[in-house]
Design a protein around this nucleic acid. Structure first.
Lengths: 216, 216
DNA sequence: TCAATAGTGTCTCTGAGACATTATCTG
DNA sequence: CAGATAATGTCTCAGAGACACTATTGA
């Protein structure tokens, strides 16, 4: 069955764009600060500026955008992503000199232990050290907005603190993501209703042992 | 200059998808309820189910997604849109029987007087009378979430109440969008800081004349 | 004067935020 | 016991929400 539109034309009688995905893969660096994974082998047309991991959507494999985002993370920076989420479509006709390329920007936030084997480079967010390729700075900005909004709503939705954690550990993760210090009693009261106690404590250090929690 | 990727292939050596835009065009119907504009001439593959106005992105015209959304509104339902905003990309490989079609869903919210000459049909949102084509019910749901969030933040961001309005008129617009009754004194105190008085009043009816306001 | 609508004073309740105190561990 | 960290009692303040009262018009 060949479908035709109201002008009698088939789908591929119109020129089609290329569709790419780009992923702002965020994590915490060794200093506990929010960082983004970039890779330093961009196309020659990008003058060596580091780029976010990205790839083209493989229509011939019936791939979804989510699958393409996960594949980009695996192939470009050797990270198994977790849950890439769409941010926006960047569609400036001139954004890519190779032709008309729409980019579906994604964000993913993963614990640092998933980053260990990466072939990418951790760049702390904030004032980025070097300009990124394409419009990727805007992608990173949107990604940060997204994860900060999520962390204001719920305790550690991405599980950066691991499965079991003390409230201090959880607070430090939130401070890293939000980029601002938090007050411990306010933080405790705000997050406790969404946590369940494990019944265990984290001993071995000086001071009163802290109870550990899991996310609900 | 012909750019090639790391496998030595050009952009169009890979199959490309078609990219469509679909617009959930919301407005208020004559009863002051939130409604969506649909058109009843969908493709034969949609078994006559009404669809949101949509069209394919015309890459050959260097069109942006925003421009395609505005063109869809003009050509399909004869409405001049205002400010279509991206919601999400729907990318299920089977969502369209004609082939691989990505749909970039948009939302726009316009005053009722822009709808007067439409060739579309106003369908009140909520339990929709008939199922919509494709995955357009999900688009409408996302669109409603979007406009309700916007109306909870600011007074009438889409200008449904016109340029000059009384607080009662503004409240009725908000009640229509949010789908719930509001309290007049709370509403007044919440919105007044974001409004400027015109100095004029709306007289002619019974009762104390109401001052009129403009959005800042 | 009455009915109708506009506008405001004020009370209560809730939750955020901050300070200070108590509790419980190690050395 | 001293020092360190965990956990909580409690005070204050701001804002949402609701009720009731006052103000101003047309009929």
């Amino acid at each position: 069955m060949i479908w035709r539109d109201e002008h009698g034309r088939r789908l591929d009688d119109y020129p089609q764009p290329s569709v790419a995905v780009d992923v702002a893969l965020l994590t915490l660096d060794q200093d506990g600060r929010l960082a983004v994974v970039v890779h330093a082998r961009p196309g020659a047309h990008e003058h060596g500026r580091p780029a976010l991991p990205g790839t083209f959507l493989r229509v011939d494999r019936r791939e979804t955008l989510r699958e393409a985002a996960l594949r980009a993370l695996r192939d470009k920076v050797n990270v198994t992503g977790r849950e890439p989420r769409q941010l926006a479509v960047f569609d400036d006709p001139d954004r890519d000199p190779r032709g008309r390329v729409l980019s579906v920007a994604h964000v993913d936030l993963v614990p640092p232990d998933r980053i260990t084997g990466t072939t990418g480079v951790l760049a702390p967010v904030g004032p980025l050290p070097h300009p990124l390729a394409y419009d990727h700075e805007r992608v990173v900005a949107a990604a940060i907005d997204h994860v900060r909004a999520a962390y204001r709503r719920l305790p550690d939705p991405a599980g950066l603190a691991g499965a079991e954690f003390t409230l201090l550990e959880l607070q430090q993760v939130h401070e890293a993501v939000l980029g601002e210090p938090l007050q411990k009693d306010t933080f405790r009261r705000h997050t406790a209703p969404d946590l369940v106690e494990t019944g265990r404590v984290r001993a071995g250090t000086v001071g009163k042992p802290a109870r550990t929690f899991r996310r609900r």
